[in-house]
Design a binder for these strands. Structure first.
Lengths: 146, 146
DNA sequence: CCGGATCCGTTTCGATACTG
DNA sequence: CAGTATCGAAACGGATCCGG
């Protein structure tokens, strides 16, 4: 079942940050600005691992550090996220990045293969900025208290 | 933000049942087999309405009955669900319907326009059975107690 | 009957503090 | 840095009640 990923407020954000931004470590997620609590973060990382979506690999140079990385199954979520992004752009009040995102609908396949290439080659340079911006807006925390 | 839909265990199931199966009424969702509590169901229907994803319209012949229906914004979620389904089929242990679903990847556009046509013409006949089966397997409740 | 609303016990979440 | 421990807050689930 995929309700470990969807049906949860954080898992999708983690996947996004791994895929679109170049996040790798516990710390990066923690200070991501979304304000996830450490225990929840730890729990979600575990569950995503159990679901075969991410994989923790100790860094070679420094055994203490752990680098989380999407598995093939994880990177295969890219089409879902991209469609979600397009959906949001289409129905959100107009905004600068929306027209850019809607253009992405046209080169859908091209963008997806670019995402996959980056993942395969461990290329962590920032992805298309409007992709990131759109994702942030679309999936951003809903600021629920104070 | 779209976290009213994703980031919740039930909303996506409701959208699925509206889109793929022909569900329309409170009762149908309630007895859907997923075992949603009536208060939660009422709450989610309200929230989906507030998000502009569904629309309640009283039936003409019988004012008591209410028919819930996806809005344009709601039916536009079809690509996301379809990709989610394909993702699940690709990574779930092989199963009869998987190969069918993977074929859907090829006629993605065709299937999406068929879904939209059904919605536009209020055609509630069952959709491609393997679509439904896949969705049920993919999004089905995780049987969490007893 | 249908579409909820209300009450209440239980489970899960989340913020903060703390630890190896 | 990468997590546990704790504990109050919120969400959930079951049962029951209610208006049309």
């Amino acid at each position: 079942m995929c309700l470990e990923v969807f049906g949860d407020r954080w898992s999708l954000l983690i996947v996004r940050d791994l895929m679109v931004r170049g996040y790798r470590t516990f710390k990066e997620f923690q200070t991501s600005g979304e304000g996830i609590a450490t225990n929840i973060l730890a729990d979600r990382l575990q569950k995503l691992e159990a679901a075969g979506i991410i994989n923790p690999e100790p860094e070679e140079t420094d055994g203490r550090k752990i680098n989380y990385r999407l598995t093939q199954k994880g990177i295969d979520l890219a089409p879902v996220l991209l469609d979600l992004l397009i959906w949001g752009a289409r129905h959100e009040p107009a905004d600068a990045s929306c027209s850019l995102i809607l253009k992405m609908d046209k080169n859908r396949d091209q963008i997806l293969s670019e995402v996959e290439r980056r993942w395969r080659e461990r290329d962590s340079t920032p992805l298309i900025p409007s992709f990131d911006a759109g994702m942030a807006r679309q999936l951003g925390r809903t600021q629920r208290h104070k």
